[in-house]
Structure formats: C-alpha cells, structure tokens
C-alpha cells in the first residue's frame, strides 16, 4: 500500500488541473446560464494545437499557452456571436443552448477524427517522466509544473474579475443579470467576453493536457462528464466551488483508485454528482436563491 501522503499529493496536483479546466465552464454558466458541452472538445482541440506546436516547432506546452489562450479567446467570441447569441430570446433557452453545444462538440470531434484519426497522442516532454524525490514521496515534475501554472492562471482570473472594470461587470452579471442591466452593464457584450474567457481557459487547459494526459478525438466526453460533475458539486457558477471540489474530489478519487480499482478515477466524480443532487442540489457554494 503506497504512502497515503503520496496519494494525497498526486490528488492535489491533479485536482488543480481539473479545477482550471472546469473554471471556464462554471464561469460561462454563471454569466449566461449556458451549459457548454463543447468545453471538453475545446480543450482537446487546444491539446492537438499544443501537441503539434511542440512536435513540429519545439514550442514547450507551457509556452504554447501564450498562443492557445488568446486564439481560443477569439474563437470563443466568434462562436458565441455566431451561435449562442442567436438563442438569447428563445423560450427554451436552457435546453436549446445545451443541445447546440452538444452539436458543436460532435462537429469538433468529427472534424478532429477525420483530420487526425483516432490515434492517441501525448506530448513527450522531458519533465513528464522525471520526478523530485523528497523522502519517500516523489513528485512528478510535469504535474507539479502544471499545478503551478493552474494556480497562476487562477490568480490571473481572480485579478481580472476583481480588479478590472469588465471583470467587475462579469461578476455583477453572474450575481444578478437583471441588476447588472439596470446599472448600465451591456450584458450582451459582457456575455460575449465571458464566453471568450471561458474558451481561453479551455485553451490553456488544453495546452497542459497535451503533455499531462493522452488524448484522442473522442476523449472529450470523459472530460466533459468529469467537469460537469465538478461544477455541479462545487455549485454552478462558483469559481471557489470548482477549486474546492476539484481538489477535494481528485484526492478522494486518488485514494479510491489506489484502494479499489482504476475505474474509480472517473466513477468517484459521477457518484459525487449524484450524491450532491440528492443531498444538496445547489452544490457546495451554490446559492439556493437570490434577492
């Protein structure tokens, strides 16, 4: 039986990455009440981009974030404007947008599969196999760097939301869309920007994914299911929730995987989702009602 601390450490490192991946998803929901089922697919596309940048141009995955994040920001602006914003006045907005994002995910998966076939990829960077040995614990360098990057990106996100004017407007819109409108926030524009940011976060996460995990076109379903579980457990729209849930559940999953079997690495999240829905549907940090 491996050292419990070892397992916990690995869980935390992984959880940080999950939290970053889910942050864009929960933010998009918080601002415009859209469940973006294509979020996982965005990440996979970004992973492919980062993979080829590394393989063909030698650009380190961490550096590739400087490319993927802005590129996906723009892509997000376009996707929202062309697709989702058209549904704003529709009476069945919630369903329609979910289905729309579902279609988008399928389209992206299909395109990736057609273009790159189903071969599993993973960037082979030097630090993905090396570790630091501290006593009886070894810390994989790649995952540690990834975790630090996630903290950094979370920090940037926090700064943006709390120190800039558009960030302020986004937070306001997340808390009460009607109120934001009434104080003069252009909620359409803010929603577009928020979607772009969500997509940018997916892009950055994809860069990290390219060396942390193996990926292939159909992998996004596993990811989106995991991330959806995270955002529900954390509380839809809550960034703090996603952080706590991400790390918490990842640690639990790590232990479950070690004690029981590898299938628990995903099953933990799905079960947590069901338990939360039964016991506390609004999640850890979700609000049951608003003023």
């Amino acid at each position: 039986m491996t050292n419990a601390i070892q397992i916990a450490v690995l869980g935390v490192l992984l959880g940080g990455v999950y939290a970053l991946m889910a942050s864009g998803l929960t933010m998009i929901y918080g601002v415009m009440q859209i469940i973006n089922l294509a979020h996982g697919a965005f990440m996979i596309v970004a992973a492919y981009v980062a993979f080829f940048l590394y393989r063909d141009s030698g650009i380190d995955p961490f550096l590739s974030i400087l490319i993927t994040a802005p590129a996906f920001f723009v892509a997000g602006l376009i996707v929202y404007t062309l697709l989702f914003s058209r549904l704003v006045d529709s009476p069945r907005f919630g369903e329609m947008t979910v289905l729309l994002s579902f279609g988008l995910a399928l389209a992206l998966e299909g395109s990736l599969g057609a273009g790159f076939s189903g071969i599993y990829h993973r960037s082979d960077v030097s630090y993905s196999t090396s570790t630091w040995d501290i006593g009886s614990i070894f810390i994989p360098k790649g995952q540690a760097y990834g975790f630090v990057a996630c903290l950094g990106l979370f920090g940037l996100l926090w700064a943006f939301l709390n120190l800039t004017r558009p960030g302020y407007a986004i937070r306001a819109t997340m808390q009460n869309r009607g109120a934001a409108q009434v104080v003069g926030v252009n909620v359409t524009r803010i929603s577009t920007i928020a979607f772009g940011i969500g997509a940018a976060l997916a892009g950055a996460a994809g860069s990290l994914m390219s060396f942390l995990f193996t990926f292939h076109p159909a992998a996004h379903w596993q990811w989106i299911a995991l991330l959806l579980s995270l955002i529900v457990v954390g509380g839809l729209g809550s960034l703090a929730g996603v952080f706590v849930a991400g790390i918490g559940l990842a640690v639990v999953a790590a232990f479950a995987t070690d004690w029981l079997s590898p299938t628990w690495s995903y099953l933990t999240f799905y079960l947590a989702l069901f338990i939360v829905l039964l016991v506390r549907p609004q999640g850890l940090f979700g609000k049951a009602a608003t003023i």
């Binding site: 306001a172 808390q175 009460n176 009607g178 109120a179 934001a180 409108q181 009434v182 104080v183 003069g184 926030v185 252009n186 909620v187 359409t188 609000k287 608003t290 003023i291």
Partner: peptide, 24 residues
C-alpha cells in the same frame, strides 16, 4: 435602445425586485 444605452440618456430604473447584487 438597450438598457445601458437608455441609462446613458439619464434614465434610472429601480425594479420591483430591487435587483441588488446579493453577495456584494
């Protein structure tokens, strides 16, 4: 015009549900 544009014309609306930001 959009609400934010109307606001720019000097019109302010206090809605029935007060529309405050609960966590702020």
């Amino acid at each position: 015009q959009r609400p934010d544009q109307v606001l720019a014309h000097g019109v302010c609306f206090v809605p029935q549900d007060r529309s405050l930001f609960p966590e702020m």
